[in-house]
Amino acid sequence: EVTIKANLIFANGSTQTAEFKGTFEKATSEAYAYADTLKKDNGEYTVDVADKGYTLNIKFAG
């Protein structure tokens, strides 16, 4: 089991951190699915992958 950390960075400057656990593939998939649910209210997003994929910096356009 691994932990994927998602740093969520919103257009208004606020930030939030979420963690997803499971296999690497499952946790990564859940992180992207979570970002997709936030897209409606926060706009499109870009992802900067860090720490060999264990950290995702997800920035929303607003």
Rank of each mutant, 00 (worst) to 15 (best):
S29N: 09
T15F: 14
Y32C: 03
K39G: 09
N57S: 13
Y54E: 04
Y45S: 01
K59Q: 12
Q16W: 14
V2A: 08
K59P: 01
K59H: 11
D51V: 02
T46V: 10
T55M: 14
A31V: 10
A18E: 08
E44D: 13
A11F: 08
E19N: 15
Q16L: 08
A50C: 04
F60C: 00
T28C: 04
E44C: 05
K40D: 12
T37W: 11
S14G: 15
V47S: 05
I4D: 00
Y54C: 03
G13L: 08
G13P: 01
G22C: 02
A31L: 08
I9D: 05
G43A: 03
L56H: 03
L8F: 06
A61L: 11
Y45W: 13
F24T: 08
A33D: 08
K26T: 08
G53T: 03
N7G: 03
K39H: 07
D48Q: 07
E19R: 06
S29E: 12
T37F: 13
A6K: 00
T37E: 12
S14Y: 15
L56C: 02
N12W: 07
E25S: 08
G22S: 09
D36I: 04
Y32R: 11
G53A: 04
F60P: 00
L8A: 05
I58E: 00
Y54L: 07
A11N: 09
I9L: 10
D51T: 03
A6P: 00
F20L: 02
E1C: 03
K5L: 05
A33H: 14
A61P: 15
A61G: 05
A31G: 04
A6S: 07
K40C: 03
Y54D: 04
E25P: 12
K40F: 10
T3E: 15
E19A: 12
G13I: 13
D51S: 07
G43I: 02
D51L: 06
E30S: 14
K39W: 07
T3F: 13
A11Y: 11
D51M: 09
A18N: 13
I58D: 00
T37S: 14
V49I: 06
A50T: 06
D36E: 10
E44R: 06
A50K: 09
V49P: 09
K52H: 09
A18F: 14
V49K: 13
G43C: 02
S29W: 13
L38V: 13
L8W: 10
A61V: 14
E30K: 10
T17W: 13
K26G: 08
K39I: 13
L8K: 00
Y54T: 10
L38G: 02
V2T: 12
E25F: 04
N42A: 08
E1R: 05
T28Q: 14
F10Y: 14
F24Q: 08
K5G: 05
N57M: 15
A11T: 06
T55Y: 04
Q16P: 02
F10A: 02
K59W: 10
F10K: 04
A50H: 13
K21P: 05
A33I: 14
A18V: 08
I9S: 08
K59G: 09
E19W: 10
Y34M: 11
K40L: 09
T28K: 09
Y34I: 05
F10V: 04
Y54H: 09
A6V: 14
F24N: 07
